[in-house]
C-alpha cells in the first residue's frame, strides 16, 4: 500500500540567490527509502534535479543529505522512519560544504584535510596489532555527515572538523612511517581539538560507528597530558619547541 508523501527538496544552482524549496508529491511505500523517492522525482517529475548516489547499500557515502534537518544516508533511510502517510519530508544538502547544485555538495575540503592528517584510510599495509583496536575508524566511508552535523563547523570554516580529527587520532595511534609531528601540530591548533564543544553530533549521525567524537576525546587526552609533561620539559611538545 503506497503512501503519499510530499518531498520539499532544496533547489539551488551555483550563484542562484536565494535558493528555494520545490514541492513534489510522491507515491511511495513505507518500506522504500528516501533515495527511492528522490530517484522517482528525477525519473518522472523533474529531470533537472541533481543528487549524488552510487551503491544503494550504505558503503559509498555519496547519497548523504539532510532529511528533516538531520544527516542521513538516504539509501538506507526508510520512509516509515522519517514521515507518515500524507506527511512531509524536507530534503536538503549537507551543511558546511560549498553547494554545487541542489543536493550535491563539494566534499573536497574534507578530503584535503584527510590528506593533511596522513590519510589513514588508504593504507599500504594491513592493520598491526589486535584488530579490535583498529576497527572503528577504518569503517569511515567519508560521507561528510559528521562535518555537516557538527555545530562547531557551523561557526568556523577553519575548524579541522570531526572526520579529519578522527583521522589524525588514528594516524597518531598508528603512524606507519608518517611523520606525526605535523599532525600533532594540526591537532593542537586553535581550530582543532580545543575548538570541539563535545556536542557528540558527529557520532550521533555517523552511519558506520566511526566514533569521531571518541577520537577527538582521545586526542584531547593525549594533548592535555603532553601539555602537562611539557611544563617539565618532557614529551613531544617540549621537543618540538627545540626543533
Amino acid at each position: 500500500m503506497a503512501w503519499q508523501v510530499q518531498f520539499r527538496v532544496f533547489r539551488s544552482s551555483r550563484g542562484e540567490v536565494p535558493a528555494h524549496f520545490d514541492p513534489f508529491t510522491v507515491e511511495i511505500k513505507p518500506d522504500e527509502t528516501v533515495l527511492d523517492g528522490i530517484e522517482r522525482i528525477w525519473a518522472f517529475q523533474d529531470r533537472t534535479l541533481t543528487f549524488r548516489h552510487a551503491c544503494h547499500h550504505a558503503s559509498c557515502g555519496s547519497c548523504a543529505m539532510r532529511v528533516n534537518g538531520v544527516e542521513k544516508l538516504s539509501c538506507v533511510t526508510y520512509i516509515q522512519d522519517v514521515t507518515s502517510d500524507g506527511g512531509t519530508l524536507v530534503v536538503e544538502p549537507l551543511r558546511n560544504f560549498p553547494i554545487v547544485s541542489d543536493l550535491v555538495v563539494d566534499v573536497s575540503p574534507m578530503f584535503h584535510r584527510m590528506h593533511e592528517v596522513g590519510m589513514p584510510i588508504i593504507r599500504s599495509a594491513e592493520p598491526l596489532g589486535k584488530p579490535e583496536n583498529f576497527n572503528c575508524f577504518e569503517n569511515c566511508i567519508e560521507c561528510g555527515m559528521c562535518v555537516s552535523a557538527c555545530p562547531v563547523m557551523l561557526t568556523s570554516n577553519q575548524y579541522l572538523g570531526p572526520a579529519a580529527l578522527a583521522a589524525a587520532q588514528r594516524t597518531i595511534a598508528e603512524p606507519r612511517g608518517v611523520d606525526v609531528r605535523s599532525i600533532w601540530q594540526l591537532a593542537d591548533d586553535e581550530n582543532s581539538v580545543w575548538r570541539c564543544h563535545t556536542a557528540f553530533e558527529c557520532g550521533e549521525v555517523c552511519p558506520s560507528n566511526g566514533d569521531p567524537a571518541g577520537a577527538i576525546m582521545a586526542l584531547r587526552r593525549r594533548l592535555i597530558l603532553e601539555r602537562i609533561k611539557s611544563l617539565f620539559g618532557r614529551g613531544i611538545l617540549a621537543r618540538q619547541r627545540g626543533g
Binding site: Q158, L160, D188, D189, N191, L223, R227, Q240
Partner: peptide, 10 residues
C-alpha cells in the same frame, strides 16, 4: 591552513 602552535589555545 594557517596554524598557530604556541600552546595558547591548549
Amino acid at each position: 591552513r594557517v596554524t598557530r602552535w604556541g600552546g595558547y589555545p591548549a
